[in-house]
Design a protein around this nucleic acid. Sequence first.
DNA 1: ATAATAGTTGACTAAATAGTTTAGAATGGT
DNA 2: ACCATTCTAAACTATTTAGTCAACTATTAT
Lengths: 203, 203
Amino acid sequence: MGRVSDAKEKLMDAVFELVWTGSYGTTTIDQICERAGVKKGSFYYFFESKADLAVASVEARWQMHRGELDAMFSATVPALERVKRYCEYSYKIQKENVEKYGRVLGCPQVALGCEVCTQEDALQKKIQSIMQYKLKYIESAIREAHSEGLVSAPDPTAKAKMIMAYYDGLLMEARIQNNVESLRQMWPGVSSLLGVKGELVAV
Amino acid sequence: MGRVSDAKEKLMDAVFELVWTGSYGTTTIDQICERAGVKKGSFYYFFESKADLAVASVEARWQMHRGELDAMFSATVPALERVKRYCEYSYKIQKENVEKYGRVLGCPQVALGCEVCTQEDALQKKIQSIMQYKLKYIESAIREAHSEGLVSAPDPTAKAKMIMAYYDGLLMEARIQNNVESLRQMWPGVSSLLGVKGELVAV
DNA sequence: ATAATAGTTGACTAAATAGTTTAGAATGGT
DNA sequence: ACCATTCTAAACTATTTAGTCAACTATTAT
C-alpha cells in the first residue's frame, strides 16, 4: 500500500549513464537528480549517498547483463563460438555508444572500478565480484574448448585471466583513444591467445 | 632575477600522487595546495586550473620515465630481454606502491586517462600521445626480435598493440583487485603472446 | 643601495554541493 | 470513505570549493 514510484530506477539509470559518459567523482547528486527528473528529497528517501546509489545501480545493471551473458554462453552454443560472440557483442555495444554518445565508453565496471577502488570500499567490492563472475563465463568456455581439443589450455583458469586482461585492456584503450575500430582486433587477438587450432592468425 | 621557487614542482608532485592514490575528480585544488605546502595564490600564479597542472605534471613525469625506458630498451640489451625487463620493472613499481601506499595503483596514465577522457580534452590528448610513445618501445623490440627469428611477429605493430592491451589490462585489473601478485603473470603472458620460441609456456 | 622582477600570503567572494526538514500529495487496503 | 503508508516538493542550512586580489617579501642585476 501507499504511493508507487519508479524514482529509484530512474536514479539508478541516471547515475549509470552519467558515470559511464563522464566520471564518478565529477558526477554530483544534483546532476543525477536532474537527469532522473527526481527531487533531492526523493533521492535521500531511497538512498543514503551517491556511493550507495552507485552500488545499487551497478548491481541492477549486472543482473540485466547476466541474462545476456547466460544466452551468449549458452551450453547449446559451441564453446569457442561463445567467446567469439562475447567479443562481437562488445564491439556492438561500443559501436552503439559511438552513435548514441559520440564516444567509445569502454567497460562500465572497469572504468568505475579503476576510478573508485582506492576510495569507495563497497563499490570496489561489488565490482570485484562482478569481474570474478565474468571471468567464470570465459573460463568455463575455455575449459570446454580445451577438453574438446579445439584449443590448448591445460590451465583454463590462467588462460581465462589472460584473456580477460587482454579484453579489459583493449576496451579501456579504446575508451582512452576513443577508437572503436581497434576493437575489431578483439576476436583475432583472443583467438591467438587461445591458440585456436586450424585458424590462420595474421598477427 | 627575482625570487626563486620550487612550488611549481611541489604542486606537480602533489597532484600526481593524489590522483594516482585517489582520483582526479575528487582531488581538489585545496588538497593539492595543502599536500604541496603551497598557498592557493601561488597555485594560480603558476597554473590556470587543475587540468592545466595535471597536464604539466603528466608531462614532467613522462620526461623522467622516458629516461628509464630508454635504458630498459637500450639497443645494447637483447630485444626480448628489453620486454622482459619492462615487465619486471612494472612489477617492481607496483610492489613499491604496496609498500608505500598499501595498495596497487596500476598505471598512472591509464587510470587518469580512463577517468578524464570524456571530460578533459587537453589531458586526454597528452595521455594518448604518451601511450603512443610507450607502444613504440615495445614495437621496436618486437620488430627486432622478429627479424632475429626469436619470435613470430610478421606484423610487429599489431603484435605490440596486442601486448600493450594485455599489459594495460593486467595492470588495471591489479589496481581494481588490489592484487600485486597477479602481475607475476605478466612476462609469461607476454611471452606466450609473442610466441617466444624455445620457451615452455605453462598456460 | 635600489629598482625591477619573481613569487607569496591571507583574506575575500560567489557559486556549488551535500544533506535536512516538514508539510503535503498520491495510492492501496479495508 | 478514510486511514496508514509511501513518496514528493520546496525551501532551507552548512560546508566546501574555485577563483580573485592587493599588499607584501625575497632575490638579483646594475
